[in-house]
Design a protein around this nucleic acid. Sequence first.
DNA 1: CCCCCCCC
Length: 375
Amino acid sequence: MSGIDEIYSKLSKSISKEEFVEKVNEKVEQMGGLCDEKTAAMLVAHDLGLNETGSSSQKIVDIKSDSGNVNLIAKVLSVFPIREFTRGDGTFGKVGNLLVADETGSIRITLWDDKADLINQGFIEISQNLQISGYVKEGYSGVEVNVGNNGMIAHTDEDIQVKNSSVKISEIKDGMGNINVIGRLLDISDTRTFNKKDGSKGRVGNITIGDDTGKIRITLWDDKTDKMTELHPGDAVEVINGYARENNFNQQVEIQIGNHGIVKKTETSVKYQENFTPISDIVPGESYSIQGSVSGLGEIREFNRDDGTVNMVSNIYVSDDTGRIRVAMWADHALLVDELDIDTPIQIIDAYAKSGFNEDIELSAGNRTRIIINP
DNA sequence: CCCCCCCC
């Protein structure tokens, strides 16, 4: 082993002796015994992106598509679920992705097979600091670092300052963590209480924010719901360290604010423009916002739901240049008919479209819908 | 981890 000791001495900051020796032995085997240990050690160092002067870590901003093998130290911002696939030769493969960042930027990491398994094994989690060795490739969404058999993922104690940049709402995808975003507060829900699995009471509430790229629902849990009483529609709101999840309710991606997340008022100015859909473009199965004027008014009706509770509904019609649609206004919204006349300008924001009475398309204005009269 | 899409 003396041949490899000399090489290892320059890499000792980046990899344990044990792991290095293991990789050297694997390399010798891979080469069918055609190279000696020292050569194998040099190849392993090369695979790991560690050159022999021992200067190891590359900054993310410097990683380019032709960087070859690289070694970087970065913080995990997001962990994406593993996918399994079948290769052309019939064997199974696994692939997983991370988003990591250092003080110079962020980059996507693609993990293959055993390395992808590290995600499921809980070895890789959001906010961890990792040392990563892999090879750079131009991926689907830009330059990424691939970590396969010859690569390495290790925990590191090194302190990493992450470039703290906020994202636009349209960039937020399922699975993202450490999300910082600024938006205009559009809507605040009531706080609901519910029973947790362990029998204790939980609290949950929602706000909706928008920026110039879209809008997104934010879910606040437990103590974080207290913050909602301090916020008002129109406020500029900053989210720090949220995480994105697709809800299992209507498959929309939302920002979750857990223990480590923050929501607060900020003085930044935020542009938001509601995106209204022409009435003739509405198809069932999605939420829409429309703007037009009242062209029909119904009565408030009370009814009993299957579970015995009483609810009320009123129906109105709204017209724009392209068409006319029925809008069912549920619960408190039903009372608005008393404030409406024919031709009253109105905006119905975030109402669900479905096929209703007589198979006509109608909008359902429930408790996630905002209705603005005389906007 | 929780939730309207219900009426005639």
